[in-house]
Design a protein around this nucleic acid. Structure first.
Lengths: 245, 245
DNA sequence: CGTACCGTTGAGGTGAGTCAAAGTAAGTGG
DNA sequence: CCACTTACTTTGACTCACCTCAACGGTACG
């Protein structure tokens, strides 16, 4: 782990939460002062399954993967965390130990806010709390996995879903082809889709032959984005919309 | 739907939430006065996927099933709601339409609290809010399904997991055999385990032949509870602990 | 120029889905 | 209370997507 350093200004979704609450400048500063930014390298763990949840994490840059290991160390990933996204809030508010490990897929700048300060602010400012309620209620954490797995959806379709999920930014010109860089290994894709790396390789080959998505290392070229969406819609999507109870 | 009637006293988990907050009697009365109890019959819907979330629901008695339907009307259940349990809170706090349908498995008494009052109380009483944070963060909603599905777990094991999940009450003497009454159809079990009714039937037959769990209609006799737990532990349980990020 | 690790390809096995049909329980009306 | 309808449950035969195991090619790094 690289030496910590203070960092002025709050990044991530948290800034948005603050804007929506009527938090005075003094309290924002209080939060800023306790924030710690640390830089982690690829494959390094940000927090580990089983460890106490001592605070809230936020990615300033880079990508991380959340996965859970069973007693046989069989890993099941269920969320890709991108720049600006928070993580660790479920165990924070659930008052549980971390039930998943966060591992850096690429080099990351990670913000950390101590539990005590976050909970205090949540208690004091209803507007701030309400934003967290929304985040928690809409959290796709385990839902990402649900969306992507499910036996009756073929691996090919699950892979397409993942591509569409990773394509949030506007790296796609409206008509032309679309180039996407996946921040993870085949092994990680497999863990996310609840499949084996071999099955992923076969699905990738198939998509390439059909001219739907051409993989070259971690770079994916998608000639026609519509062709992807068409295919997911024609398949059975068991949890297409958000599954909010 | 049977005519509504007022009902004194707040049941369910909500009472516990109130006890943990420092809510004055006047506010508790405010909540009680807006509460509505209605009785629903088997198969009746308590709320429907796509409808606006107008309040919080709570089962005073009976069992209900939460399921989500895709565009092909393929139903995937993900939670069994028992007496005292709340439902509908995710869409309430997520400010989304209901993304699932709640359907009564047996006759139910359902409490309903209007959104406005609940949100007001959450804003006013941090202790009350904190309990909801915990509930949301620990919510197994979609997680139940995750626990039970996953291709690499055979249907037989998923079924055992469900039995253990339904066996919360102490209907088991310490040594003797344990009798359990499932509140649902085979079809519902299938939806919960992301399997087909035929596969459930086969798994049930197998468990009976092995003398691990004898099904007779909706009544399940488990000669030795340990035999069940042993089997789940020896299998790969991808999400054994709670998956809280 | 090895040593790892990652990625791909092939052969073989299998759990569970699908389809179809028979058996059983539950609910209805005379 | 019984005949009838309807819905649920079980069984069997077949098929297939994916897993497993094993081997080989590629690339990074010492």
């Amino acid at each position: 782990m690289v030496p910590n350093r203070k960092c002025a200004g709050i990044g991530c979704k948290l800034r948005e939460h603050i804007r929506c609450s009527d938090m005075p400048a003094a309290d924002v500063t209080r939060l800023e002062n306790t924030m710690v930014v640390r830089t982690v390298t690829r494959t390094e763990k940000i927090f580990s399954q089983g460890a106490d949840a001592t605070g809230l994490y936020c990615l300033r840059s880079g990508h991380a993967l959340l996965w859970h290991a069973d007693i046989f160390n069989h890993k099941t990933a269920f969320r890709v965390v991108g720049p600006g996204e928070m993580m660790g809030y479920r165990s924070l508010f659930g008052e549980d130990a971390h039930a998943a490990t966060a591992q850096a897929l690429t080099a990351c700048d990670v913000c950390y806010y101590p539990k005590k300060v976050v909970l205090q602010l949540v208690d004091e400012f209803p507007g701030f709390a309400r934003r967290f309620f929304r985040t928690l209620a809409r959290d796709r954490g385990p839902r990402d996995a649900l969306l992507l797995r499910g036996q009756h959806i073929p691996v090919r379709t699950r892979l397409i879903n993942l591509l569409l999920l990773m394509n949030t930014d506007e790296m796609c010109p409206d008509d032309g082809e679309c180039v996407l860089k996946l921040p993870m290994l085949r092994r990680d894709i497999a863990a996310l889709l609840a499949a084996r790396p071999e099955s992923i390789a076969r699905a990738i080959k198939e998509l390439g032959q059909d001219g739907i998505a051409i993989f070259s290392g971690r770079t994916v070229t998608i000639p026609n984005l519509d062709a992807l969406t068409v295919e997911t819609n024609s398949e059975q999507l068991p949890l297409k919309g958000a599954v909010t109870v």
